[in-house]
């Protein structure tokens, strides 16, 4: 196990370099951020040259990348073009997005698993069919439609919630956006749990337990549920990283000043230090989540052993 972890950690290094390089090239390929700073005016060449020098834009791309990475390892994520250190932006944005993603995960656990267990135990009954249809509908409607419609109906028309989230982004404000963000994954969790329960319901150990005369409730909770949740737990683990990056749309609709919001702003304004910095962190989160899930999977399922 230890050797496996070390090998995986070593493998992370080239992946990390590759991904950040890819993003770096993409972001810088968008164009020259200096143009945008001058608004409708053609950039004055002298000032533009000074700005390019300040942000290392006058150097070849590979050197820019090396310089940038060098700085990152000393904890310096550079300065956004509006003069704010990127690390400061991160300190504001990441807690908000983590909060949003965690709320979404909690919804997935509470609603998704409950529905999944319910339908898995009652396969083929009306409740199973209706939930199944519902999950399909949820999956097929894009998040931005649910988000905007929800914002209009619940936020504006009926006035139950504030339609936008304040800069503080408190937990109660994030409840509805969190639900919107969770919806699609929630539908997947429901389906995953349902299938898993149904499958394990026919497994030998369950039949044995039932044959032993254990109460139905005890069989369901102690034996069936615990084993059926293995794939669900691993799914949720990976989903945390997905949700953080995928919050782009939700954060835009509800004006949540998190990672997606800053990234979107950064891309629109070609604030390359912001974009590359945020993506670098996201990539680390993603890669680590991957590793943790693989390990978790081995821990949960004794049939898998890592050499």
């Amino acid at each position: 196990m230890g050797r496996y972890v070390i090998r995986r950690l070593l493998q992370m290094i080239p992946v990390f370099i590759g991904t950040t390089l890819l993003i770096f090239v993409m972001v810088y390929a968008i164009g020259d951020p200096v143009n945008a700073m001058f608004g409708d005016r053609a950039p004055d060449p002298a000032t533009a040259a000074q700005l390019r020098e300040e942000f290392d834009l006058d150097k070849p791309l590979w050197l820019q990348y090396v310089l940038y990475m060098g700085k990152i390892f000393t904890g310096d994520f550079g300065t956004a073009f509006n003069g704010q250190p990127v690390i400061e932006l991160m300190a504001n944005a990441f807690p908000i997005t983590v909060r949003l993603a965690v709320i979404a995960i909690i919804f997935e656990i509470l609603i998704g698993i409950t529905l999944g267990v319910l339908t898995g135990l009652r396969r083929g009954r009306p409740i199973d069919t209706s939930v199944l249809v519902l999950t399909l509908v949820v999956i097929s409607v894009p998040t931005f439609v649910t988000g905007t419609l929800g914002q209009y109906l619940i936020g504006v028309k009926w006035g139950w919630i504030a339609p936008a989230v304040s800069p503080a982004a408190t937990v109660d404000e994030l409840l509805f956006p969190g639900l919107v963000l969770a919806l699609v994954s929630l539908a997947y969790v429901t389906r995953l749990t349902r299938t898993s329960i149904a499958e394990n319901g026919r497994a030998d150990y369950v039949r044995t337990a039932v044959a032993k005369g254990l109460p139905r409730r005890r069989v369901t909770v102690r034996h069936l549920l615990r084993n059926s949740l293995i794939p669900v737990v691993t799914f949720l683990g990976t989903d945390l990283g997905n949700l953080m990056a995928g919050a782009l749309v939700t954060e835009r609709i509800f004006n949540i000043q998190g990672v997606g919001f800053q990234l979107f702003q950064g891309i629109v304004r070609q604030n390359s230090p912001t974009v590359v910095g945020f993506v670098t962190i996201l990539v680390i989160v993603f890669i680590v989540a991957n590793l943790v899930v693989d390990l978790l999977y081995a821990v949960l399922d004794p049939r898998i052993r890592y050499a």
Partner: peptide, 14 residues
């Protein structure tokens, strides 16, 4: 892994 590490929505935007 490298291509997998880029969230699809974000990659799309860029």
């Amino acid at each position: 892994d490298i291509f997998f590490g880029i969230p699809i929505m974000l990659g799309g935007l860029v």
